[in-house]
Design a protein around this nucleic acid. Structure first.
Lengths: 229, 229
DNA sequence: TAGATTGTTAATCGATTAACAATC
DNA sequence: TAGATTGTTAATCGATTAACAATC
């Protein structure tokens, strides 16, 4: 029997509920801000208040992977930051490839927020020969033909797809064959990946749609609340 | 009594479950692709397959706001597209303001995907005088000081925040006072808005963290699946 | 008609919240 | 000690799935 009934505090044996992941990132961002504001400790109540969720939710999320709190006191920001980074996998750095150096890809190459959270843009790729061979924001641009060779040589494990929708699936397939571990797809199209590769889709037009949907939904709520009286 | 027990087919009186909104956008994107590929009809099974969700889920989502299907046949793509756009609010166009014309803001001004889904970038704002007064990608750049006046004059209802994290909350507050209806925040910080304004947060570093989290979670799953045997 | 697929109900599953003893 | 806050259990809530009669 290689395993006890209770999980060890800091290396969970079971997958965490899906919804927890995103909140962990929000906790981390908030904790980093609190710490840089000079706050040494905080509480589930405070954290929940800042993020608009309940204190019980915060504590529950954190207990999935250990016991970091001090009853009567709260949590030490630095300890909790370290713990969450371990869970998210950002306690070490990751190399990232950018595929597509058009409008959006170029902007993302210049975004400093990635490096701050342990992601290093290690290479960019495009089919436009006029872009190849020259760095953009200190990231070298390679021809897409060298994708497999370059990704393997530099040991890149993650990629962002910022190519036109029509090319996204083919690029994704080529990335998979390099042995990549995860992909963020910015192209406005659903792509299919095999089981073993993580996929996050970010569609900017869809985010805007969620805004108008929420605005209309608010009207629908109001209507049903005041209706029938 | 102004209302029957059953909801009318195409104008729901109750707010839709939160999780449904995002899937509606995915259905819409897929339907538009199917239609442009010449598919006149599709089915819940096919749609679910393309998006990796169950056929029951698709049908359930669609029945929240009506009966569009033809038993034995499926759904007409064009009808369903129209219906979903009505629900999302993209059956008419929306004017959008971009606040912050740095790296990211500029890239977003050039993104054609917004216009395709009914969002028109109507004005951009920055504090950098050297940018003010000249259009970028056909969008005029105004000084942030004229935010209130310009947003009201152009009847802009939505905004994107692409300013540094430290300025995001103040910009958000100023937007609220113009009477804006919704905001997408690209700054990596939590901002607080009053009840009546919709807020979507898009943090690109957090999306990357979700990728590494998912990759590690996969390992945790495998470990617990093969463990204890 | 036989085959396909919807709309809908009931059962299941998972996630959130409330409550409180244990702890500092 | 009194006050604050954790970790955890049980109750609640909401979302997903399975199943199937109704329909074309």
């Amino acid at each position: 029997m290689s395993r006890s009934k209770k999980k060890p505090a800091d290396s969970p044996d079971d997958a965490l509920p899906k919804a927890v992941g995103h909140r962990l990132s929000l906790y981390l961002r908030e904790l980093q801000r609190l710490l840089s504001d000079g706050q040494e400790t905080t509480s589930s109540g405070r954290l929940g208040q800042l993020l608009g969720i309940s204190d019980a939710q915060v504590r529950k999320d954190l207990t999935y992977f250990g016991h970091f709190g001090y009853p009567g006191v709260g949590y030490r920001c630095d300890e909790l930051i370290d713990a969450i980074r371990r869970i998210l996998g950002t306690d070490h750095r990751w190399k990232v490839a950018m595929i597509g150096v058009g409008n959006l890809g170029r902007a993302l190459l210049g975004y400093r927020g990635f490096a701050q959270q342990s992601f290093d843009l290690a290479a960019a790729f495009d089919v436009d020969q006029s872009l190849v061979g020259r760095p953009i924001d200190e990231v070298m641009v390679y021809h897409l033909d060298s994708l497999d060779e370059t990704v393997r040589r530099l040991r890149i494990k993650l990629a962002m797809i910022a190519v036109p929708a029509t090319a996204a699936q083919e690029v994704a397939d080529r990335l998979v064959s390099t042995g990549i571990e995860g992909v963020v797809n910015f192209a406005p199209v659903t792509i299919q990946l095999p089981e073993g590769v993580s996929l996050i889709g970010v569609d900017l037009a869809i985010e805007m749609e969620q805004l108008t949907f929420a605005a209309l939904n608010r009207l629908r709520e109001d209507r049903s609340a005041t209706d029938g009286d």
